[in-house]
């Protein structure tokens, strides 16, 4: 039986490893049906992570986003398949959604369920991306968001889209985002490397991320 407990495991393990899915799979249909029920605790778990994150706990936040990413990936792929846009870059949209969740995280009310909130943002961003590709999209998804899970182990996928947008940012913001995202520096390391104060790095990082998100919603397009 796969390990189910231990919140500490989540950083190193993908969600799938923590679910006993493969032990209850008499048939594929049955497994699909079960998906929504396998982790009824997902919402409360995500809620407590995001609550801690909103209070400034960046480790919980990172864990929250890491758990979210594969679920969002499955969501986007399914939506793309449904609208016959399977060729579109799913990972661009996933990153776009993550950015939006990040910048809009204060719109979640801490007492409300977090999953519907996440999927509303995901749907908005996916439809937005498809519209920019000139598709008419009308996707009722309320009925199937709850059934989504991350159903495949994924490699760490990349998208070129944000790299392209990075080039259009003001120099300081670009350098800070690159140092932290690409080179993997902490705020302190980036501050030292770029000879800035930590506060200035924080501000530049936040503005840089906000600018990246704004580039897409202004119609720059993930296309």
């Amino acid at each position: 039986m796969a390990v189910t407990g231990g919140a500490d495991d989540f950083r190193s393990r993908r969600r799938d490893n923590t679910r006993p899915k493969r032990h209850v799979t008499p048939s594929r249909v049955f497994a699909n049906k079960l998906r929504g029920c396998v982790r009824p605790d997902r919402d409360s778990e995500w809620s407590s992570l995001l609550r801690a994150a909103n209070a400034g706990d960046s480790l919980s936040y990172q864990r929250f986003l890491r758990e979210l990413a594969p679920v969002l990936r499955a969501f986007v792929r399914r939506l793309l398949a449904r609208t016959n846009s399977a060729g579109a870059e799913a990972e661009d949209i996933v990153q776009d959604i993550l950015l939006a969740i990040h910048l809009k995280r204060q719109t979640w009310i801490e007492t409300a369920p977090v999953t519907p909130w996440v999927f509303t943002i995901a749907r908005h961003k996916t439809i937005d991306a498809l519209r920019r590709r000139g598709r008419h999209v009308d996707v009722p998804i309320d009925d199937f968001t709850e059934m989504l899970t991350a159903d495949t182990e994924e490699p760490n996928l990349a998208s070129l889209y944000i790299d392209r947008q990075l080039g259009t940012l003001p120099e300081v913001q670009r350098k800070v985002v690159q140092a932290i995202a690409v080179a993997g520096d902490s705020i302190a390391e980036a501050a030292e490397k770029l000879m800035m104060t930590r506060g200035a790095v924080r501000v530049a990082l936040h503005r840089g991320l906000a600018a990246l998100a704004a580039r897409t919603s202004r119609g720059g397009g993930a296309a």
Binding site: S58, S159, A181, G184, H206
Partner: peptide, 15 residues
């Protein structure tokens, strides 16, 4: 950019 790298930078912006 890898999604995981993006996530790490988002987490750094956690004020």
């Amino acid at each position: 950019m890898k999604t995981d790298d993006l996530i790490r930078s988002l987490a750094q912006d956690s004020a």
